[in-house]
Design a protein around this nucleic acid. Structure first.
Length: 268
DNA sequence: ATGTCCACTGGAAGTGGA
């Protein structure tokens, strides 16, 4: 089973890219970010026709997240990150799919820094860390997937000097990511490729895609119950090379089948 | 400072966000 995350940068203007990718790669579970659309504009019809059930947490103009499931309907377990009732941004949705708990997140970009947007990023990150603490310990398999807007180390960017002042590389952002990992999460892509440069995002400027000047900011974190099932991971970078692409590429993990659910025990 | 793209407003080109 393939679980993927894809920052689509506008689902309405990118629908054909999404459908082509779904048809070619047929992931079982998909986390989407940056829909830039309210739920009323979400293309449920074409996505259903492609064979996927969908959950959408949208808003006008910005942000927006969704979870797709091939051949079934994801069962929603939460939307909006707990911890701040005044936070209106549509950046988190959670569901159960195929025995997995799937958290789909779009962490704030945080630029320019310093400033209120960077403060919001760090505050949101703290709320994520708090929420993740319960998930990581679960006996159930959990994946936290999305656009984290964090370049974990200098090895995850083509040239750290060019991005030194960017919110994605700040020590505070990286410290939060490390603290999240330290709970016990496995960073699927880096575990699969411990010594290779691998990117998930190439901005639209200065022919960065053509020169492979990328960043690794889309991450799939697995708890212990799921990490042992990982058989492969990768980036569908061909999608970034298509006409009219998002600046991100779909990033995925392949998982072996889990043990069948028990009829007794575990129940609370 | 620059570079490019998306969505929105308003009814063209500018703004905000990334």
């Amino acid at each position: 089973m393939k679980v993927a995350t894809y920052n689509i940068n506008g689902i309405r203007s990118r629908l054909s890219n999404l459908l082509e990718w779904l048809e070619k790669e047929a992931p079982e579970v998909v986390c989407l970010q940056e829909l830039k659309s309210p739920e009323s504009g979400f293309p449920y019809g074409p996505i259903r026709d492609a064979g996927y059930g969908a959950l959408c947490h949208g808003q006008k103009s910005w942000n927006g997240v969704a979870i797709l499931a091939r051949g079934e309907e994801p069962v929603e377990t939460g939307r909006g990150l707990p911890g701040d009732p005044n936070d209106e941004h549509a950046r988190y949705i959670e569901a159960e799919v195929r025995g997995l708990v799937v958290g789909c997140l779009y962490l704030p970009n945080g630029n320019p820094q310093p400033g209120p947007k960077f403060d919001y990023k760090l505050a949101w990150f703290e709320r994520l860390i708090t929420h993740a603490k319960a998930l990581v310990k679960s006996k159930r398999p959990v994946v936290l997937a999305g656009d984290y807007n964090v370049v974990p180390t200098d090895f995850d960017v083509y040239n750290p000097r060019s991005w030194k002042k960017d919110a994605l590389l700040q020590p505070e952002s990286r410290e939060c990511y490390q603290r999240l990992l330290a709970q016990g999460w496995v960073d699927a892509l880096r575990t699969r490729y411990p010594e290779e440069r691998i990117y998930t995002f190439w901005d639209y400027f200065r022919q960065h895609w053509e020169k492979n000047s990328g960043l690794r900011i889309d991450h799939l974190l697995l708890n212990a119950a799921l990490a042992s099932r990982m058989t492969d991971a990768g980036v569908d970078s061909w999608v970034r090379g298509r006409e009219h692409p998002s600046d991100h590429a779909p990033t995925w993990v392949e998982l072996a089948d889990g043990a069948p659910a028990r009829k007794t025990g575990q129940k609370k």
